[in-house]
Design a protein around this nucleic acid. Sequence first.
DNA 1: GCTTGACCTAGAGTATGCTCTAGCTTGTTC
DNA 2: GAACAAGCTAGAGCATACTCTAGGTCAAGC
Lengths: 151, 151
Amino acid sequence: MMDARATQALSALHIGEIARRSGRSVHTIRWYETQGLMPGVVRDRGRRRVYSDYHVGWLDLMERLRLTGMSIRQLREYTALVKQGSASLPKRRALLAAHQLRVHAMIAKWTEALTLVDAKVEFYDEWMVGGVRPAVSPQQRARDKRSMPKA
Amino acid sequence: MMDARATQALSALHIGEIARRSGRSVHTIRWYETQGLMPGVVRDRGRRRVYSDYHVGWLDLMERLRLTGMSIRQLREYTALVKQGSASLPKRRALLAAHQLRVHAMIAKWTEALTLVDAKVEFYDEWMVGGVRPAVSPQQRARDKRSMPKA
DNA sequence: GCTTGACCTAGAGTATGCTCTAGCTTGTTC
DNA sequence: GAACAAGCTAGAGCATACTCTAGGTCAAGC
């Protein structure tokens, strides 16, 4: 049976290992720390950064938030809240919920923007098949599509 | 009844007007031109750029493609194809269709990334209501959500 | 013909988010 | 105790996409 020290040792990771597990470079992880995005990083006697499994999950969250368009500035705000402990729970929840709303709005915007691209593709198809430029402009077509999505 | 010259005159726009109509700055529109993103721009006797209604629609398309993540480099490729005339129709269609696929893939990726944020929000809710940190990690919760979306 | 506003070119500056280099220290292995 | 990998800090460099400045030109109204 493993004792607490052994378990602790198993989840103590140096920067190279956490870089490998998170798919980032060591440079990026150190830069994240300078930007205030890495809570609870301690150092060993040789001043090396020591991470745990927690940080693998943390970097996963950071990646997802970045991927969905959250800026480094906002990630810093969120990280600062996490560092404050459980008193900041309502604020953390609000920050993430606001982000969710923004992402859903962005998806709606993208979907809307794609209507014109859809229309362009169809327009090109007709043009290629018919050999002549179709009369209806893709802009008009996109408007039609939006107003009558089920037609 | 309007003759061809009058119609032409009506749709002849200077850069300030097209900036106003497209919601961009004149700087940006000139910069787009240097980047090869403005096909068919002619000059008047005083070397001023002359646009038409076509360019308003063009800038709308550029905006939608940018918004959905297309890079300036790819917009340049697309514009170059448009400048080549109808011989490039199959390539244009392919470029736009590939972009559509990328956007749909991106939306799927975003939706997937949001599962963890959803889980975090629920986790915070429980934590706030219960006063103690819930046992299940948001990472675990996100995994559960993905594998059993209907549970 | 002079003022005024819009336009012109060339190029510098900015914001964001990394990404890498240089030069040095530390821990481990033989 | 020497070699070597991995880590450290400070700071430079880079890609993308604008955004703006400086210094001049042009057209239209008075």
